[in-house]
Design a protein around this nucleic acid. Sequence first.
DNA 1: CAATCATTCAAGACAACTCTTGAATGTAAG
DNA 2: CTTACATTCAAGAGTTGTCTTGAATGATTG
Lengths: 220, 220
Amino acid sequence: MSPKLDLLAAFAGVARALGNAHRLDLLEHLAQGDRSVEALADKAGLTVANTSQHLQALRRAGLVLGTRRGKQVIYRLSADDVLDLVAALRTVGERHATGVRRVVDDYFHARDALDAVSFAALRERLDDGLVTLIDVRPADEFADGHVPGAVNIPLAELEARLGDLPGRTEIVAYCRGPWCVLAFEAVALLREKGRSAHRLEGGLPEWRRAGLDLATGHAQ
Amino acid sequence: MSPKLDLLAAFAGVARALGNAHRLDLLEHLAQGDRSVEALADKAGLTVANTSQHLQALRRAGLVLGTRRGKQVIYRLSADDVLDLVAALRTVGERHATGVRRVVDDYFHARDALDAVSFAALRERLDDGLVTLIDVRPADEFADGHVPGAVNIPLAELEARLGDLPGRTEIVAYCRGPWCVLAFEAVALLREKGRSAHRLEGGLPEWRRAGLDLATGHAQ
DNA sequence: CAATCATTCAAGACAACTCTTGAATGTAAG
DNA sequence: CTTACATTCAAGAGTTGTCTTGAATGATTG
């Protein structure tokens, strides 16, 4: 084959590695923090063997790296530019009406849920005490790293803990990324209960990628 | 399926559309300017029917748009963010040793050919008359748009037209993109002939995407 | 309206991807 | 050294992508 097509085939291989919903899901989970195969299989709802094979596809493409630690293999994103690539994919995908928009309309019946709060706006209003920021991911992911000032209320517990939220403030919810379903559902639930709620424009990986501070541990 | 996986499947579909060397090639050609199916088939070295099918795959993914004009259908990139996506793909791909680097080493035997001249450095030295900028793409692509001050010397004619080039100046060559083979081969040929030559860091699409001026027509 | 041309469609052969199952490997602990 | 455990490998069935060939569609031209 020609050198030109060889080069393009190498890039195409990276693209093909992104061309599967489960693998994109695994990348989103890895963006929350490094994980073992079993942990990823659990989060993604796949069998261990299948997860392992997907991870190897991602590794062949240079998107993730695996390191043995004891009897586990810990996978991690190979570099931050992987997040940029997925973000670029999302940007193009969002424009394509017959894909993303339809899904959002069908499942969330909420075009208004699309308008999100920017990082800059959040920081300003958080400093002024005007908003309550909630992290609706599971506790383990929160502990791995979260936005300073955020309260961890996993989506499953949100309804039961509505009373914990200050009465007057606006609520901003975030989770794993710009299209993570948890924050969408949290906002929908909160609005149903009469609260003023918005999504944050990105999740934890985007916050970190923007060079902003992180907090760790089980605080709050 | 869950809404989450539906969303990811939509993004994965876009990625799969990028997961073929010929389709990446077609996108690079479309980045030079809008083209008919037959023109693209000719440039990419594919049959018309096959080109049509690849273009439809790209269109389904929202990457390109087709408009009928007379008896032809003219395809174009759907938006500039497609260039950003391909650029992000290239960035990640470049890091992955076993793909890109090996191809470059094998075919070009020239790691030093990798260091490219930045747009900023080019403009400075071009103003000072220190470099000759050559566009080694075919004449029709040059006519569609080129970097102001560039001389069009298609790669096939380069050896015959060496005498046209000023003797003392350094030569900078560009073509269709950061990994377009034409500029690599032009630099290799020029160095073989004892000239000081470098690639430009990007091709015409990157120049345009950076918001820099374009010239059109057959001048020079 | 018949002829021509660019593009798209349809069908078929072949290759690649995806998931499951069960076995194999490699590491740690008893 | 045996056992237990996390991960990977291997084989197989079903699905999807790719390219070729020849026909069909849609638009212009004489």
